[in-house]
Design a protein around this nucleic acid. Structure first.
Lengths: 216, 216
DNA sequence: TCGAAAATGACGCATTTGCGCTATTGAAGA
DNA sequence: TCTTCAATAGCGCAAATGCGTCATTTTCGA
């Protein structure tokens, strides 16, 4: 017998009437998808949003931006996956959306079929990005990353903690206060971190920590 | 009259015979695509590669890895666009490929249709990533990025130069030697950079520079 | 249970850094 | 032409940093 799979519950937040209609139509007529609700602004969406699997969110909305919408929704328990569906192609908006927690970023030129695929892939834990956006992200990512250094030794948990604070720009004393140990101990941890990373200064350590992904 | 568009010239580098056949077949039978050459290892490919638009590159090849292949090809003048087509799902390999200069990253489970789409999108300057990979990249990217700070003032060219060296871990004296100015002047530049970034230490500056994308 | 890490804490000291203050030169705009 | 600003250079000083050396306690796997 065929497995009865639940429809993917989709919510759309879009102010432009025509485009809203088009996308609504795409979702509603697609098998396996259910359009749970449609909102034309973020406030309404935040107030009335029903249980949903995936939210399609415009960015350029009146009043509150879709970026804020993402930020707010992602604060909630068991948040939906959110795909930005927008015309913004500038790095700033793309980065802001990603940092806010968006799980995908499609440009409005995307075909209905692709939108449906993106929703499915997002449901499965993947990320969908328009190739143009993916390109931008990759470029930005590259400038923040350096080739993996296999000689870096593994950092202990405590050391990771200290390294994290170092990356935040705290000095010995501030770190000491933050984690309730003596500044002398902080010095020791940092000393050990330097050895493991093969660096000799704060700036080197910070740079390497970020670019090697050693801090969350 | 219809515009006569040239076929996209594709090169495949793949050691596994069966998969090689499958992908070859996909490319050859597709309209608008031409399979220019197929290689089963990186050395052959580097030696004999013909003019090509897009290269599909496996990672797990005998002898030299596909990552090396990317690195080498991208060093050449007018390099092709390169899409990784592989089974590796670990962050390490993904990151290495990206840093090496890969323009896309597809898992081998990708359908023929998707591969063709990816090639086209890559030709158009976009980046194609399997949703799973895109997700990984996005995660890694987020940990290296912070919300855009609009209060950061624009850094002059010279300052950018200094900031770059700061990020590389050099101290005043080393920077001074590198760009042939007095250490005192370096101090002044850094002082100004701190003001513009609103930070008060090297580590803060380095962190902010990287996470805000202020250095290339 | 024994030893190796990990985490903690400390002292000294030469360097480096962050910042206040000042000053000159050249280029770009008003 | 006058002014602003970037780039250059310098001095002084308190604070922070990097590193050598040493020591105690805890934890955890062999």
């Amino acid at each position: 017998m065929p497995v009865k799979r639940k429809n993917i519950r989709v919510v759309l937040v879009e102010d432009h009437p025509t485009y809203r209609e088009i996308v609504s139509e795409v979702i509603e007529s697609a098998k396996g998808f259910a359009l749970s609700a449609v909102f034309e602004n973020v406030n309404d969406a935040l107030e009335k949003i029903p249980a949903a699997d995936v939210v399609l969110m415009d960015i350029g909305l009146p009043q509150r931006s879709g970026i804020e919408g993402v930020t707010e929704l992602k604060k909630r328990p068991d948040p939906p996956r959110i795909i930005m569906l927008t015309n913004f192609t500038d790095d700033e908006k793309i980065m802001q959306a990603i940092i806010a927690g968006a799980d995908g970023y499609l440009l409005k030129q995307t075909s209905g079929q692709k939108i449906l695929e993106a929703i499915e892939e997002t449901m499965n834990g993947g990320t969908s990005m328009t190739p143009f956006v993916a390109r931008r992200v990759l470029e930005a990512f590259k400038s923040r990353t350096e080739v993996f250094d296999p000689t870096v030794e593994s950092i202990s948990l405590r050391e990771q903690e200290v390294l994290g604070l170092l990356v935040q720009g705290l000095n010995y004393k501030q770190i000491a206060e933050k984690i309730f140990i003596s500044p002398e101990t902080v010095r020791n941890h940092i000393r050990n971190i330097y050895e493991k990373l093969h660096v000799h200064s704060r700036s080197e350590a910070v740079s390497k920590a970020i670019k090697q992904g050693l801090v969350k």
